[in-house]
Amino acid sequence: MANVDIFQVRTHEAPLLPAPVSTTGAIGWMRQNLFSSVGNTLLTFFGMYLAYSIIMPFIQFAFIDAIWTGDNREACLATDPNTHAGACWAYVKAYLPQFIYGRYPEMERYRVDIVYAMFVLLLVPLLMPSAPQKTLNAILFLVVFPIVAYFLLTGLEIGDFVVFPIVETAQWGGLLVTLVIAVTGIVASLPLGIALALGRRSQMPIIKLVSIIFIEFWRGVPLITVLFMSSVMLPLFLPEGVTFDKLLRVLIGVTLFSSAYMAEVVRGGLQAIPKGQYEGAMALGLRFWPMMYLIILPQALKLVIPGIVNTFIGLFKDTTLVLIVGMFDLLGQIQSSFSDPNWSTPTQGHTGYLFAAIVFFVFCFGMSRYSIFMENKLHTGHKR
């Protein structure tokens, strides 16, 4: 009898089977990224050990062994000589008003709170791309808010009528000074940096030379020297009887210093724009400023968002240097609190610096994440 081959013909589609568990989900991701080879496995275990060695002591100090309540240093001292006390958050709680307001009069601190509230209420919709009335919002934030904040913080007296009592800037401190310097420097340095970048690329020799000299001078001088010169040396060169507020001198020095770095960041974006964009704009009959405003600058600034935000973050952290000229920002206020014997403990310094690190991290991380959000929203073919 001849051999007969029997074939099975499927009359319907076979059911779809799920992918193996070892290739999907968390397990698949770990197999592919952490344990794909012997070398990667060893590096993974070494990284886990290193992270455990760093993170666990931090958690132990900051949370598990931390002291959260107390009225003085006795609450933050270790009860057992063989153990170490954790972070003294009771000390931070007691000094929190000074960390936020400095020596601003207690009865007038509501004015600072109003400025904080106005800043948040105007900044948040300005940063939201879908928020309406952008032009009005920008005018309120960039024009109205600085004027109102100035009179609220410094005071306003009309003749014998006192609207807000005068508070000297020498009494300001803590987070208030940090934000005033950082926000003023950020807002003022960006347009000045754009102008300097355009000036450095100008075809007019005088403007180009002045821009180059300005940029290279400020980039070649440390910020500490700038603050020292603006606060200590500048009054020696002024005419007799002419004085400037110390905070104003610091603001001017920080703004000029930051604008030089901002100019180079913006110039990098301008140089990244293809020549055809300039030629296309001129072919449409656009003059220099309409061309820059409508076509070139929007593309250039979009390309250098990471560099701009990086400069902003550096400026925000550099505000701590104002301590050398006698201004007590957040870090300076924390350092001055170490002289209080009522809270003097072995962990006071660690706790104060940890609190400062957390505050600076929150602000800097927020700026970083927002820059990533804007990059993802604005990229149109540039992202790789």
Rank of each mutant, 00 (worst) to 15 (best):
A2R: 08
L16N: 04
V21G: 04
G25L: 11
G25K: 09
W29D: 11
L34A: 15
V38H: 08
F46T: 05
L50K: 10
I64M: 06
A66W: 12
I67R: 15
W68R: 06
D71Y: 07
R73F: 05
C76G: 15
L77N: 03
T79Q: 14
N82R: 07
A90T: 08
V92M: 10
R103F: 09
Y104D: 09
P105K: 05
V120S: 03
L126W: 01
L127Y: 04
P132W: 03
T135M: 10
L142C: 07
G159L: 10
P165D: 02
W172L: 11
L176K: 12
V177K: 01
I181N: 02
L190N: 04
P191R: 03
A197H: 08
L198D: 02
F214G: 04
E216W: 02
P222Q: 02
L227M: 11
V232W: 12
M233E: 01
P235T: 00
I252D: 00
S258L: 06
A263G: 05
E264N: 07
L270M: 03
Q271D: 13
I273A: 06
P274Q: 10
K275D: 01
Y278M: 05
G280H: 05
M291E: 03
L294K: 15
P306Y: 03
L321A: 10
D329I: 07
N342K: 07
S344F: 12
P346H: 09
T351G: 01
G366M: 13
M374Y: 02
K377I: 03
R384D: 12
